[in-house]
Structure formats: structure tokens, C-alpha cells
């Protein structure tokens, strides 16, 4: 792993200064009031011990949050971004891969209404629904095509 030159908790230096960005739908807040500690959940003892692969990056608020996914890349990032953008409550959604050598993917969600975490959850669940629809249609098309063409498999 490449060595880190900055300490991981260097929160304020990652965010842009709030005065410089175009007007946002988020409320004006003072930097120190709403700052949450990065919510690193303790390792949950599930059936297989799964390391926590999603975390909220420091500097996130209720409606504007950045999430870091480990071991994910463009495959999930772009698909998830597209689905989350189709949510009318979402003001901003984008993903990036900070460095190609590290398997990390950051997603930023800013919402007009509702929490960013809810938007993320909705996005993941919508994506699952899409997969269901695709799989079902694919299988039924495949069956009818095989029947038409006389393919037995």
C-alpha cells in the first residue's frame, strides 16, 4: 500500500470553503457545529466476519455526505450514481476514485429533502429492483427465443 502523507482525520482540509462554492440547497452551518466523527462502525459479527466496507467521510452533514466504499470501482460507482441522480430529492451526486492504485470509491450525495444516507439506501434498493427486472425479462426472452429457434439448453 502506498504510504499516507497526511493523517486520515485531517477533516477540514478536504472540504472546499463554503463561501467559494455556488449557492447550495443545504442550510448555512458553522463548520464545527454539525461535524460528525467518521462513523466507523465496529466490526459486526455476522455469519462471515465482514469488514465494514462503507464509511461516511468526515465533514459530512445530514443532507450532504460523502461515503467511501472499499473494493468497489467504476462498476458499482457509475451505476449507483446514475440511479441516485434519478431521485428527485437529490441535488448533487457524483463518484470518484481518489487513486487508481487504491480500491476505494467515494460517492458524494447532497439532497434537497431527506438524508443523504436515505438517498444512498434508496439508490441501492432501486438498483436491485432494476437487476430483477433485467434478469426476468432476459430469461423470458431467452426462453421464447430458444423455443422459436428450437434450441434445447
Amino acid at each position: 500500500m502506498p504510504g499516507r502523507t497526511k493523517a486520515q482525520d485531517d477533516a477540514s482540509s478536504h472540504d472546499a470553503d463554503m463561501q467559494d462554492v455556488p449557492p447550495s440547497a443545504q442550510e448555512e452551518i458553522s463548520q464545527d457545529a454539525e461535524m460528525r466523527e467518521d462513523a466507523e462502525a465496529e466490526e459486526e459479527e455476522e455469519e462471515e466476519i465482514e469488514t465494514q466496507r462503507v464509511r461516511i467521510l468526515p465533514g459530512s452533514t445530514d443532507t450532504a455526505a460523502s461515503f467511501e466504499f472499499t473494493d468497489e470501482g467504476h462498476t458499482l460507482g457509475n451505476a449507483l450514481r446514475y440511479i441516485i441522480m434519478k431521485n428527485p430529492d437529490v441535488e448533487f451526486c457524483a463518484y470518484s476514485i481518489p487513486h487508481p492504485s487504491e480500491p476505494k470509491m467515494n460517492i458524494r450525495i447532497q439532497t434537497y429533502d431527506g438524508t443523504a444516507v436515505n438517498a444512498l439506501k434508496k439508490g441501492l434498493s432501486d438498483l436491485q429492483d432494476v437487476c430483477d427486472v433485467v434478469a426476468e425479462k432476459f430469461w423470458s426472452e431467452r426462453q421464447s427465443f430458444n423455443a422459436e429457434q428450437g434450441i434445447e439448453r
Binding site: A41, Q52, V54, K121, L127, Q128
Partner: peptide, 24 residues
Amino acid sequence: FLESVKHLKLKCKKLEQQVINMVQ
């Protein structure tokens, strides 16, 4: 292709659980 669609779904399912864990 079907396997690939299932895989994406499984990926989302696992991550959904992780997101729920994350905010607990």
C-alpha cells in the same frame, strides 16, 4: 449474463446491509 445481473444485485444487497450497519 444472468449471472452478471445476479452478481450486481448481490453486490447491492451486501452494501445495503453495510450501510445500515454503518449508521447504527
